[in-house]
Amino acid sequence: MSGNGNAAATAEENSPKMRVIRVGTRKSQLARIQTDSVVATLKASYPGLQFEIIAMSTTGDKILDTALSKIGEKSLFTKELEHALEKNEVDLVVHSLKDLPTVLPPGFTIGAICKRENPHDAVVFHPKFVGKTLETLPEKSVVGTSSLRRAAQLQRKFPHLEFRSIRGNLNTRLRKLDEQQEFSAIILATAGLQRMGWHNRVGQILHPEECMYAVGQGALGVEVRAKDQDILDLVGVLHDPETLLRCIAERAFLRHLEGGCSVPVAVHTAMKDGQLYLTGGVWSLDGSDSIQETMQATIHVPAQHEDGPEDDPQLVGITARNIPRGPQLAAQNLGISLANLLLSKGAKNILDVARQLNDAH
């Protein structure tokens, strides 16, 4: 009898209710805020589980004197976190989706994509230029951005401005803007500013005609071990179906173009009346040469937790077992079709030249 009692006690200790789920994140304040929001949602869904947040620095956090596009290494903000995932030191990792490459290392998958916040870019102005827009900034004003995508589009749109690289986390960039006289304004992701509670610093939100956004911008991705079915089931509740389908289309477009950090590629997606609209573009580094096109596809946005595919093969690095396969494939095909259209119009040449120029500098 006593033996059975011990077995029952052991089973209770090993039951999922007692389990601590370890969540990996970057150390920056924004990353911690984003991770806290994901953990809060998981806690609400699984009140019996405990969650421990483990923060670590990544290569991208450490190399702050070089433009991201020049470092010449993929997975700048993800490699150390993936290493911890691989060694079973954490069970899942919360990322900004735009930091996750469209091809993940073997053994990993994006197990959830959370509801997207505003994906557009924002302009934050130096205190002396508050009330201005990019259009009304004085001639030769210097605007800071760490992104080739932003610089290429904005140089084309605002030729009277000069664009220079600015690195560091959000706090560091804002301090550089406010305390030094080098920059009249800087460009940042609206979602990051909003998550930090800095709505009052948003001086201008850039519309798609001015600057399309990065693939996955404004959404959070939760990376897990691809074979860890328990954790895949656990994080599945975080999937937002519309965000998922938009981001599958965007990531398929980028992957098929073979774009990345070192080339200016941008997108804009919208879901309306059962249609998914995808606009994508590529630019030369100075913005003088560009190709942009829009395509659409009829896609039914499923309700969360309709029964999805059981075999769960990944699409552009994403596993969404609780979302039907048909809409996911339709979104992926839309991204591939748009990429093929741009490639047929000469996108590869623009991107190759951009890559060579970026590598040469």
Score class of each variant (00 low, 15 high):
Lys128Thr: 15
Leu334Asn: 15
Gln155Tyr: 08
Phe253Asp: 01
Lys157Phe: 10
Val124Cys: 08
His83Val: 10
Gly218Ser: 01
Gly317Pro: 11
Thr59Gly: 07
Glu135Met: 14
Gly192Asn: 02
Arg201Glu: 00
Glu89Lys: 09
His120Leu: 13
Trp283Ile: 06
Ser141Arg: 10
Lys87Arg: 13
Arg116Ile: 02
Arg175His: 05
Asp352Gly: 01
Leu232Asn: 13
Leu232Lys: 13
Asp91Trp: 01
Leu254Gly: 00
Leu285Met: 13
Asn118Leu: 06
Arg173Ser: 01
Gly236Asn: 00
Val237Met: 08
Arg167Gly: 10
Ile54Ala: 07
Ala270Phe: 14
Thr190Ser: 03
Gln275Leu: 01
Gln153Pro: 11
Asn358Tyr: 14
Ile231Asn: 07
Ala347Ser: 15
Gln181Gly: 11
Ala185Asp: 07
Pro302Leu: 12
Leu134Gln: 02
Gln181Met: 10
Asp61Ser: 03
Gln328Arg: 03
Gln50His: 10
Ile248Leu: 10
Ala189Arg: 01
Leu238Ala: 01
Glu82Gly: 04
Gly107Val: 08
Trp198Met: 15
Val130Met: 09
Thr172Leu: 10
Ile205Thr: 11
Ala122Asn: 12
Glu179Val: 13
Met56Asn: 06
Gln296Met: 02
Ile71His: 08
Thr41Ala: 11
Asp289Glu: 09
Val142Gly: 09
Leu315Gln: 04
Leu148Pro: 15
Cys247Phe: 07
Ile318Lys: 15
Asp228Thr: 03
Ala226Val: 13
Gly168Trp: 03
Leu68Tyr: 11
Lys345Phe: 15
Val202Pro: 15
Leu177Tyr: 00
Tyr277His: 15
Lys74Gly: 09
Arg173Asn: 03
Val39Asp: 01
Leu100Ala: 04
Leu342Val: 15
Leu85Phe: 04
Thr294His: 15
Ile186Ser: 06
Thr109Glu: 02
Gly221Asp: 03
Ser288Asn: 08
Leu148Met: 14
Val202Lys: 07
Val265Phe: 00
Gly218Ala: 06
Glu73Val: 08
Asn88His: 10
Phe125Gly: 02
Ala249His: 01
Leu188Arg: 02
Asn171Val: 06
His207Arg: 08
Asn322Gln: 10
Leu234Asn: 14
Met295Gly: 14
Leu161Gly: 04
Gly308Tyr: 01
His305Ala: 01
Arg175Phe: 03
Gly346Lys: 01
Leu161Glu: 01
Gly335Thr: 04
Leu154Pro: 01
Asn322Arg: 13
Leu341Cys: 07
Leu161Tyr: 11
Leu276His: 01
Val103Thr: 15
Lys62Arg: 08
Thr319His: 15
Asp240Lys: 10
Asn340Thr: 10
Gln153Glu: 04
Gly326Tyr: 12
Val124Glu: 04
Gly317Thr: 07
Asp65Arg: 12
Ala112Gln: 08
Gln304Trp: 06
Asp228Ala: 12
Ala249Pro: 04
Arg175Leu: 09
Gln296Cys: 02
Ile53Trp: 06
Ala219Leu: 01
Lys140Cys: 10
Val93Met: 09
Ser146Pro: 04
Arg149Gln: 03
Thr269Ile: 00
Ile53Pro: 15
Asp61His: 02
Pro324Met: 03
Thr279Lys: 04
Gln332Arg: 12
Val263Ser: 09
Asn118Val: 12
Val316Leu: 12
Gly326Glu: 14
Val316Asn: 02
Gln181Asn: 06
Arg173Val: 02
Thr136Cys: 06
Ala214Asn: 06
Asn349Asp: 12
Trp198Cys: 13
Ala219Ser: 09
Val237Tyr: 04
His268Thr: 01
Arg164Ile: 09
Leu154Asp: 05
Arg355Cys: 00
Gln181His: 09
Lys115Val: 10
Val263Met: 06
Leu170Cys: 08
Thr58Gln: 04
Gly107Tyr: 01
Phe125Asp: 02
Ala249Glu: 03
Phe129Tyr: 12
Val235Cys: 03
Asp311Met: 14
Val39Asn: 08
Cys211Ala: 11
Gln217Trp: 02
Ala252Phe: 01
Ile110Arg: 01
Lys98Thr: 02
Thr58Gly: 01
Gly280Val: 06
Arg195Leu: 11
Val235Lys: 01
Thr145Ile: 04
Gly144Asp: 04
Leu254Cys: 00
Ile110Phe: 04
His305Gln: 12
Pro208Gln: 10
Ser337Trp: 00
Arg149Ala: 02
Ala40Phe: 07
Ala320Arg: 04
Trp198His: 11
Ala354Ser: 04
Val222Tyr: 02
Glu162Arg: 12
Gln356Leu: 10
Cys114Tyr: 07
Asp307Ile: 01
Trp283Gly: 13
Ala339Met: 01
Asp359Asn: 08
Arg116Met: 03
Gln229His: 11
Leu97Pro: 01
Asn340Ala: 04
Thr58Arg: 02
Asp307Asn: 14
Glu162Asp: 10
Ser262Phe: 00
Leu238Thr: 02
Ser290Leu: 08
Ser344Pro: 14
Val222Thr: 02
Phe163Arg: 09
Pro47Ile: 04
Asn322Thr: 05
Lys348Glu: 15
Ala330Gly: 04
Cys261Gln: 03
Ser57Asn: 01
Ala226Arg: 08
Ala354Met: 14
Trp283Leu: 03
Gly259Asn: 00
Lys272Arg: 10
Pro159Tyr: 05
Leu100His: 01
Arg251Met: 10
Glu179Arg: 09
Leu343Met: 15
Asn349Ser: 06
Gly260Asp: 15
Arg225Ile: 04
Ile299Glu: 11
Glu89Pro: 01
Arg195Lys: 03
His300Arg: 05
Gly197Met: 02
Met271Phe: 13
Leu92Lys: 03
